[in-house]
Amino acid sequence: MASQVGSLYKPDDLRRADAFQIFYLAINAGVIASPLIVGTLGETMGWHWGFGAAGVGMLIGLAIYLWGQKYLPREHFGVAKTTAEPKEPMSRKDWLATAALILLIPVLAVAIVPNNQIFNAYLVWADKDFALYWGGEKLPTTWLITLDAVVSVSFLAIVAGFYRWWKTRWTEPDELTKIIIGSVFSIGGMVCLYMAAATTPPGEKIGLAWPVMFHIVNSIGLAHMLPVSLALFARLAPKQINATVIGLYYLSFFAGNSLVGWVGGWFETMPVTQFWLIHMALATGAGVVFMLFKLLLAPRLMGKAEPEDAALA
Rank of each mutant, 00 (worst) to 15 (best):
G188H: 02
P173Y: 11
R169M: 10
P89L: 10
S183G: 12
W165C: 05
L144V: 11
R169P: 00
A131I: 08
M195C: 11
L104C: 03
P89V: 09
L176T: 14
S186Y: 15
L139M: 15
A126H: 09
W95I: 12
I105P: 08
M190T: 07
L144C: 07
R164L: 15
E88G: 10
A84P: 01
A111F: 00
R164W: 09
E137Q: 13
V107Y: 04
W95T: 01
E85L: 14
S154E: 01
K93L: 09
G188C: 00
T146W: 06
V124I: 10
V124M: 00
L104K: 06
I112G: 04
V124D: 14
G136A: 11
P173H: 05
P89M: 09
C192A: 14
L108H: 02
G182E: 07
L132A: 07
E85S: 10
D174P: 04
V124Y: 02
I105M: 10
I181N: 03
R164Q: 11
A126S: 13
W95D: 01
E172R: 12
S183A: 15
N120A: 08
L123V: 13
M195R: 15
F130I: 10
I181D: 06
D127L: 08
D94A: 00
L104T: 06
L139E: 00
T168A: 10
L96R: 14
I118M: 14
K128M: 10
N120Y: 13
R92H: 13
D148L: 02
D94C: 00
S91I: 06
E175Y: 15
I102R: 00
L96F: 09
A149H: 04
A99G: 11
T171Y: 07
Y163K: 04
G189E: 05
P86W: 03
A109L: 02
E88W: 01
E88K: 12
I180V: 14
T177F: 08
W165M: 12
